[in-house]
Design a protein around this nucleic acid. Structure first.
Lengths: 250, 250
DNA sequence: GAAAAAGTGTGTCAACTGGTATATTTTGGG
DNA sequence: CCCAAAATATACCAGTTGACACACTTTTTC
């Protein structure tokens, strides 16, 4: 919080109006950063879009980078708000040594919450693009990493721990982590390549029914994969030729 | 090809020197567009990096957007060069009504080729970032879609057809397409979120050994999922209790 | 070997960028 | 009501951007 002193704007003042415009700026910035990337979005456009004038950005956030980081903070807090419950449940399940089915369920629940948030959160389109730009390398990546880790690290550690349990491997094992990421990729692809998805399915948007379909597919496949992991646990690795898990199917 | 007339440069002239510098510009542009996005990369920087002066870009490509589209064309042709064989094999397997195992293998082979290309292609880092920027929405997206479809459409149709066969559903069915994409996501995540992957695994780069591990994980999980699809084919959806087909597994 | 085409270099422009200095207005507590 | 803090607005700066006009050199062709 040492940085806060630099701002001319006292973030925690009793003044309400300041907080409001601060929020308007962040909202507009997320949208424009998402659409055009960090360098592509000009501070002037952000200001106009937020209904303020250009120096307001310096007043509230010191610099363009400050605006960007404030956007990250805002998005991260939104995500965590949506995921914390599921993640904490998963952590608890692991701690108390829950059974395999329960672990699988906890994992799927995190994914389900994530999917729900990805597709239904208000202004989801805006921050999803923002995140995509970030992954692509746009913006002050160092600052992003620091802030983003708050939610990402904890979530993926919870997921990796579960996968590790099922595999009978350490949670920080290379293979465990890779498998966890591949699992997450099933859902992630719908966030990152949403445009491609919509085009290929000839969908105009994602309504409740379609979201339910996506969630079902992801859940089924994730559960199937995790049961497969369970079944092949301990099996000799280099010979996966034979039908190792006959009754591994649910 | 109507656009070609606009260029002062005759792309198919006998002149060799022109083609060379044209290529140097594209190479430099892919790198810079990838690092900084379409708007973040300046034509001057691209020119300097390519060892030419600024107006050369207008001379060869008419405009900044022209440079960008030429980059897309170049990348797409590289990708297709790497994937065409595997895709054509898959298409052939489908046509001749090959067995399930063979279809699964053909699918995995496409993924394997893609992985190989993603991680080992010369200057892979450059065009991967370029693609990531594109997916994020940076750059003249309309032009990209048109060009990119040349490879993307055919590849994903081949993959969807195989998945459809295994599921006993049409290839253009919503569920088929979603499952195909979720499958692809397992690999895609390593392209899109490579930075996250490297950080979480504490890897500095991806060497041959690590690539082999990734490919094995993806292949195993993809094959497992596809066998699961096969096994649950025809089973009543809400009650996947019975091990419907044990002979279906491999 | 000269004319024409292809390619390269120099100088310049108007538009826009992020940021600053500096009013002016609005707000809230005494 | 008053006045200091908070918030908003005006005018401006130096640097960069994409693009252009035009002169120059190299290569090909007849």
């Amino acid at each position: 919080m040492a940085r806060a002193a630099k701002h001319r704007h006292a973030a925690d003042s009793g003044y309400q109006r300041g907080e409001e415009t601060r929020m308007r700026i962040i909202t507009a910035a997320i949208k424009l950063f998402g659409e055009r990337g960090f360098e592509g979005a000009s501070t002037r456009d952000i200001a106009t879009n937020a209904g303020v004038n250009a120096p307001a950005l310096q007043y509230y956030f010191d610099s363009k980078e400050g605006v960007y980081l404030a956007c990250v903070e805002h998005i991260v807090s939104l995500i965590w708000e949506a995921l914390s419950e599921a993640v904490e449940r998963a952590e608890a399940a692991v701690r108390r040594g829950a059974g395999d089915d329960e672990l699988i369920d906890a994992f799927c629940e995190i994914q389900a919450q994530l999917a729900e948030f990805m597709f239904t959160s208000r202004s989801a389109d805006d921050w999803r693009l923002f995140m995509a730009q970030q992954q692509a390398g746009s913006g002050p990546i160092a600052g992003f990493q620091i802030i983003y880790q708050r939610v990402s690290k904890r979530m993926s550690e919870a997921m990796a721990t579960i996968v590790g349990r099922l595999l009978g491997r350490p949670a920080n094992d290379d293979e465990t982590l890779l498998r966890t990421m591949a699992l997450s990729g099933q859902l992630m692809v719908f966030q990152v390549a949403r445009r491609t998805v919509l085009t290929k399915l000839d969908w105009d948007s994602i309504n409740a029914e379609r979201l339910a379909l996506i969630k079902r597919v992801i859940r089924e496949q994730t559960a199937a994969l995790m049961r497969w992991m369970l079944a092949s646990r301990g099996a000799a690795r280099p010979a996966p030729r034979r039908p190792a898990g006959r009754r591994a199917i649910q």
